[in-house]
């Protein structure tokens, strides 16, 4: 077994008296898709906000390649190789693909002049690597589909050095066909072998299609985790519902 790129130990986060995370462990390996599942309010968002440096944990530690790290800002997390692709994607609609790709990290020559041709080429090549052949990187992002925007945000995170790619419900606001496009993109990134992906989703089918490893959260705690082989399909459904037995639910529903 290879070393995990990132390891999280006994992570606790309290917001005042509210226990958002209560001792969460997580390991992510390069070349693997780690599905993070859980109901609303399970603590998924809090966990990724800690991993991406938005919040500081109350206690617990994060190890990158075996070394303990503290993230005081999103910049620290980015520097440690953690790239987060949020649901809103941090993309500007009126700007071109290239200008979005390099937003805030433009390639410049003297006087801050943009190396536009080079940037167009890189944006095109990086997006092609994970599956979209964009003939015109000068077109506005507003004309792209949701799946293509997702790809742009992922390609951008990888190009700027992400070794752990956190995808926050990348399939949730998309149509069926575009969901499949995003899953293909995830597979292609996985195939590179050097990037660990944390895939946050509500969708059991999507997680089964791409995930190598699972962690289930409920009420701020890990209620199940392990490689795909160890987690049976039946288990997934039960754990997805936060541990509640499907049968109980059926019973309760029939009584209404």
């Amino acid at each position: 077994m290879t070393e995990p790129y990132m390891r999280v130990e006994k992570l606790v986060k309290k917001f005042g008296p509210f226990m958002a995370l209560n001792g969460v462990d997580l390991e992510v390996y390069p070349g693997e898709v780690h599905a993070l599942l859980g109901d609303n309010g399970a603590g998924k968002s809090t966990l990724i906000k800690i991993l991406s440096g938005v919040h500081e944990p109350t206690s617990g530690s994060i190890y990158i390649e075996g070394r303990a790290k503290k993230f005081r800002s999103p910049r620290d997390a980015t520097a440690a190789g953690i790239g987060t692709v949020y649901q809103d994607l941090a993309i500007n609609q009126l700007m071109s693909v290239t200008r979005n790709f390099f937003m805030g990290r433009e390639l410049t020559s003297a006087f801050g002049k943009l190396r536009m041709d080079e940037m167009n080429q890189i944006a095109h090549d990086e997006m092609l690597k994970i599956g979209i052949d964009f003939s015109d990187p000068t077109q506005a992002v507003g004309t792209m589909s949701g799946g293509q925007r997702q790809t742009l945000a992922i390609a951008r995170a990888i190009y700027f050095g992400a070794k752990v790619l956190i995808l926050d419900e990348p399939t949730s606001a998309l149509g069926q066909k575009q969901q499949m496009e995003v899953l293909k993109t995830i597979k292609r990134v996985r195939a590179r072998g050097d990037i660990a992906i944390i895939f946050i989703t509500h969708n059991e089918i999507h997680s089964k299609l791409v995930a190598d490893r699972y962690t289930f959260l409920a009420l701020g705690q890990v209620i199940g985790s392990g490689p795909k082989a160890e987690i049976e399909a039946q288990d997934i459904r039960r754990l997805m519902a936060g541990g509640a037995e499907m049968k109980d639910l059926e019973h309760e529903l029939s009584q209404i």
Partner: peptide, 24 residues
């Protein structure tokens, strides 16, 4: 149209939250 500052100006006006998230 040609500089980094120009890209920052467009990004700021388009959506300042996503611009900020990208380090503008």
């Amino acid at each position: 149209s040609r500089t980094q500052l120009g890209n920052w100006i467009y990004a700021t006006g388009d959506n300042k939250d996503s611009a900020r998230a990208n380090g503008v």
